[in-house]
Write a protein that binds this DNA or RNA. Structure first.
Lengths: 110, 110
DNA sequence: TATGATGCCTAACGATTCTAGGCATCAATG
DNA sequence: CATTGATGCCTAGAATCGTTAGGCATCATA
């Protein structure tokens, strides 16, 4: 990946996707763009990571999808957060906060 | 893993081990104990994660090891951070900070 | 004597991200 | 008109790395 772009850690991608979709329905490629934009270009999700992840997440019932015509006139697959997905997002955010806190504690050590 | 214990994310273990060793030489099992203690029992590294990780890390030259007698009277393998390991720790901490920041940005989004 | 903590290790598995490829459309550029 | 880069979907294979589950030994404690 390009310089200055943080590699994703395994386990963070689902949270990012759910967060992106929590701001409103999006098509797959749009999820990549929104995450990149919101993170000030620091996070770049690869297509080869995104599409399998969206499939996984849909299987788990956290998002639903439908085909529609994008404003550009092209067909695209739109994803929407389900109620279960919103709950999952909260869970993952809480886990993330705990991990960040725990690691901060270790790093505070003299 | 037990409740209230944050699961480690892939990629964080090396940093934690290096950090633990940056506070002074330790034997393998002691690394687990120190991480658990510093994190207020929030992080629990499994032995099956630790020993392979220590091997990896030593191969990369970030730690050196020697057998010695532990204060308990038992033989133990002691690990010590090398100069390269200290540099690696700084690199990993900086990466971690960037990732935490980037994810915070995404989560700040309205 | 039995159990749990300490101390080392390995093998197999599972989960997840990345690289690299394929295919199509569209706008901009030469 | 041809080419290139961005947009849009997808898959296969490789690589990484933490966990589970096992093995073995010592020691303190019950």
């Amino acid at each position: 990946m390009a310089k200055n772009k943080a590699d994703l850690l395994q386990g963070t991608l689902d949270m990012l996707i759910l967060k992106a979709l929590s701001l409103g329905e999006l098509h797959g490629y749009g999820v990549i763009q929104r995450i990149r934009q919101l993170s000030d270009e620091m996070l770049n999700v690869e297509q080869g990571s995104l599409y399998p992840a969206l499939y996984r997440i849909e299987q788990k019932g956290w998002v639903s999808s439908r085909w529609d015509v994008h404003e550009t006139g092209r067909d695209a697959k739109f994803y929407k957060l389900t109620r279960a997905g919103r709950k999952q997002l909260e869970t993952e955010e809480a886990s993330w906060d705990r991990l960040v806190l725990a690691i901060a504690k270790v790093r505070q050590a003299a």
